Amino acid sequence: VAKQKTNWDNLVENISQNEWYDTILDNKVLFGIGTVVMLILAIILYGMVGGNNEAPDFTLRDTEGVTFSLSEYEGKKVVILDFMFSTCEPCEKLVKEAIEPYSKKMDNNEVVIISVSVFGEDSEKTLREYAEGYGWRHALDIDPNNSENKGEVTLDYKVTGTPKIFIIDKKGEMTYSHTGPISESELSNEVKKAQTGQGGVVNLQQSSIFLFAVGAGVMVFFSPCSFPMLPGY
């Protein structure tokens, strides 16, 4: 009984009958070199871009009117960087269940908390009134009194939702990030990891990984050696 062809069988047959596929088969060496070059480029790009977990520096003005920079804490304190806005319910949950209880027991000589209001949701007055209930620094990412602060921090940290929290160690490197509420114990544990050099690695740039996946995927898919590994072949 003849085996009934599947859609996949028909696709493979159609591809193999095209002249461009015959050209690929006739240039296996060139194709192999192309694959190796793609892998090398991906590794280089990852080292240059994707592997960098240095926290982007920024300068903002807090609700007390004091201008500060993230870099001033480098070598001195671990930073808990919280992206939020005052009417965000999940942000308030994060504050009540993690940040506020942790702030009451943390060593102020070792750890600092910075909350940055994003997306233009808060006015200067609104954020100032909100911050009065808490004992840490708050600032607007979009500052109406400073033409240089127009949301760049949000863009630099790839913030697309709130709350978004980062932990930055004394070397200025991001060791943890999370979107959404977390517990006080998790926050405390991640800060300890940052303090002891046991923290993770956070990469804001993933373009090289994407290039690797697409490039290698295309190379492997059209490789003469790939079809035996594909389903239904």
Rank of each mutant, 00 (worst) to 15 (best):
D26H: 12
L230A: 09
D169P: 07
M84V: 12
S71D: 13
H138T: 01
S71M: 03
K171G: 11
S183H: 06
E72C: 08
G65Y: 01
T196Q: 13
G34S: 09
Q206W: 15
G151E: 03
T160V: 10
D107W: 14
P56N: 04
I209L: 12
V49C: 06
N18P: 05
A139P: 04
L39W: 07
L39Q: 07
I15N: 04
K96S: 10
E13R: 07
D107C: 03
T6D: 02
I33R: 13
K104V: 09
N18S: 14
W8F: 11
P181Y: 06
P90V: 10
Y102I: 11
E54H: 12
A42W: 04
I24H: 00
V214T: 13
S188F: 02
V37M: 09
D22G: 08
G161A: 15
G34T: 01
K96L: 08
M106S: 06
V1T: 12
L41Q: 04
Q206Y: 15
H178S: 11
Y157D: 04
V201Y: 13
E72H: 00
D26Y: 06
G217T: 01
P181G: 10
L127T: 00
P224S: 04
Q206P: 01
K193I: 06
P228C: 04
M174T: 08
G34V: 00
Y134N: 07
V37N: 11
